[in-house]
């Protein structure tokens, strides 16, 4: 495993991430948004909460691509890639889940009912359960990896598992929520997470899409740092 120079050492996309995220924060708080009942100013969470999930999906996709690359070449480098991208994706997933919990507490939870009642309605929401299943499947990926001692066996088993995990990720966050009723926006439309037609106007898109790219690039940046560190560690151990 050599340290060849590649996209990980380029700085233009890191700079782009910083610029886009700065833009997200400024335009995200100050830009115009539709005035909607119940949501009010919380609609600005679109630039933060929803972007976490987008970044998670993209990073999991990168991870599974690297698992397949590993199975094709048996180069341990790709196993490190797959693992680190999956870990950062899980972090983004947890952030998406917890930000969603805060958001739901102030929009879905019925303040007239006792807290336990109000929250049990939210907890039964199929979109939340689907996302929880997806995250738990990926937690198991990490546990499975760390429970195998042999390097090649570990890489091979976890690469195959990663493909299975990816195969359950999309049904649980894309297909399942389309079938079942939910409190989460984007119910009657085609999109399982966003009410693209009603809630999000063109002004919000101007912030939302750059925000998705910015958050994803930040995730990629962190993942590549972890990859570079682990490649160095690997090199030192084999030397």
């Amino acid at each position: 495993m050599t340290n060849e120079k590649n996209y990980m050492h380029k700085s233009w996309w890191k700079l782009l991430a910083v610029v886009l995220l700065t833009y997200t924060v400024i335009a995200g708080f100050l830009g115009p948004v539709p005035h909607l009942p119940l949501l009010q100013e919380t609609i600005r969470n679109l630039y933060f909460h929803v972007c976490m999930w987008f970044a998670m999906m993209i990073l999991f996709t990168v991870s599974v691509v690297n698992s397949i690359r590993y199975l094709r070449t048996f180069n341990l480098k790709y196993d490190i890639y797959a693992r680190q991208f999956a870990v950062v994706a899980i972090v983004f997933g947890i952030l998406g889940y917890s930000t969603g919990a805060i958001w739901a507490s102030y929009t879905w939870a019925d303040p007239n009912k006792p807290a336990a009642n109000a929250f049990s309605t939210i907890a039964r929401d199929p979109k939340l359960i689907g996302a929880a299943i997806a995250l738990l499947v990926y937690f198991a990926y990490l546990i499975l990896r760390d429970s195998v001692q042999d390097m090649d066996k570990k890489a091979r088993i976890s690469a195959v598992y990663n493909i299975f995990a990816y195969a359950i990720l999309f049904p649980s966050i894309w297909i399942l929520p389309r079938i079942l009723p939910s409190l989460h926006p984007g119910n009657d439309g085609e999109n399982p997470a966003l009410d693209v037609k009603n809630d999000i106007d063109s002004g919000m898109r101007l912030v939302f899409y750059p925000a998705v790219i910015g958050w994803t690039l930040l995730g990629v940046w962190i993942a590549t740092l972890k990859i570079r560190f682990n490649l160095l560690k690997e090199k030192k151990m084999s030397a």
Partner: peptide
Amino acid sequence: VVAVALTIMAGLILYVFRLDRKISRLEKES
């Protein structure tokens, strides 16, 4: 609020940037 959020963002990015620099140095040494 914008100032606070920007400060947090700047701090986190500075942290990641410094990590990047440190790892680059390690790579150069190895």
